[in-house]
Computed example of a mutant assay.
Amino acid sequence: MRIALLGPLEARDDTGAPVEIAGIRLRTLLARLALSPGRPVPAEALIDAVWPDEPPAGAINALQSLVSRLRRALPAGERNRLQSRPAGYLLSLALDETDVGRLEALVAAGRTARDGAGGSEGLALAARRFAEALALWRGEPLADLETAGFAAVAARLIELRLRTIEDLAEVRLDLGDTGDLVSELEELTAAHPFRERLWAARMRALCAAGRPSEALAAFEELRRTLAETLGTDPSPPVRELHLAILRGDLRPASPSPPGTCPRWPRCVAAWTACRSPSSSPARGFARCRSRRSPPGSGTGSGCSPAAAAPRCRATRRFRPWWSGAGTCWVSPSGSWPGASPSSRAAPRPTRPRRCARTRCGCRAKTSSALSRR
């Protein structure tokens, strides 16, 4: 049996046929039990959900009668799922048998893939998981059960949906998949004017589309809205993004070379780490004098086209959400670990230091040998 809560309450049997649950109290009872699948729900919590204003006299007996009616309303093969417990009642459901459970599992899987070291493949997997999670949404949670007992649950699920939308927008920007993202974010910022992550994603999308002046106008709109409504300013991350746009650090999106870090346009804007033929493996890294050269150009002191390509391993240990940049480890071979066995075997730098260059978009960590040069 599957129960859908992300919208009007729906119940379906194993064949997909709808299960008719008549009566607002029966539906409220089923929804409250389904929100805690496989876990006992105290009788007091069920009474508060079914009769939020004032419970009837003999509420325990009335609840027992209501549970019996709900058990009879379930299909014959599913009635044993509704079980009595000393402290209350339990609806035996797996997490993936409710759309809320599937939503939370997909969002968690997407964030794990995004925060991992899988590069563009991990980001693409995260985008798919976030999109699948959002596809489960059918409207306001439990829209047909207008009781105060579900207000907190509905607010939590709405917040989870908005955060998932923000996560998906940022992942799409990291992948360079802007598409219709600008128009979508314009609608979202109009509907949710205080969600600064949505405004930051909109500004990034406009820059990726080659419209930085409109990105600056969007920042001014956000600043004016916050000042007039709340008497405050945008958060520091959004202000830093605004400064980055003014400096011209954000460039229009372009496809990443196959097998390279999906953030190479930002990496090459400030750093290109390469291995000089004159440097020994012990020194590990050498700084490329042509750090603004296009990837694979081969210009600069001792740089080959393969070495100049800014391929990196995005461990994402430091990932400011407003810029989409990850913490990048660049191996001595210039390759991105995961692309080939040789790149995975490349040694990591020792004694990492934070890049001190103010215009560094990717916050690359470098070895002490690179820092000395």
Score class of each variant (00 low, 15 high):
Arg161Glu: 13
Arg161Ala: 02
Arg161Asn: 09
Arg163Trp: 12
Thr164Ala: 13
Thr164Pro: 14
Thr164Gln: 07
Glu166Gln: 14
Glu166Val: 14
Glu166His: 01
Glu166Ser: 12
Asp167Lys: 01
Asp167Gly: 00
Leu168Gln: 06
Leu168Pro: 02
Leu168Glu: 12
Ala169Tyr: 02
Glu170Gln: 10
Glu170Arg: 09
Val171Thr: 03
Val171Trp: 05
Arg172Lys: 03
Arg172Met: 09
Arg172Gln: 10
Leu173Thr: 01
Asp174Pro: 05
Asp174Lys: 13
Leu175Ala: 04
Leu175Ile: 07
Gly176Gln: 01
Gly176Phe: 00
Asp177Gly: 10
Asp177Arg: 11
Thr178Ser: 10
Thr178Met: 15
Gly179Ile: 05
Gly179Tyr: 02
Gly179Lys: 09
Gly179Asn: 09
Gly179Ala: 14
Gly179Asp: 02
Asp180Arg: 12
Leu181Ala: 06
Leu181Phe: 02
Leu181Trp: 02
Val182Gln: 07
Ser183His: 15
Glu184Pro: 05
Leu185Lys: 04
Glu186Lys: 14
Glu187Met: 06
Glu187Lys: 14
Leu188Lys: 02
Thr189Phe: 11
Ala190Val: 11
Ala190Gln: 12
Ala190Met: 00
Ala191Ser: 13
Ala191Ile: 00
Ala191Arg: 09
His192Trp: 11
Pro193Thr: 05
Pro193Trp: 08
Phe194Thr: 11
Phe194Pro: 04
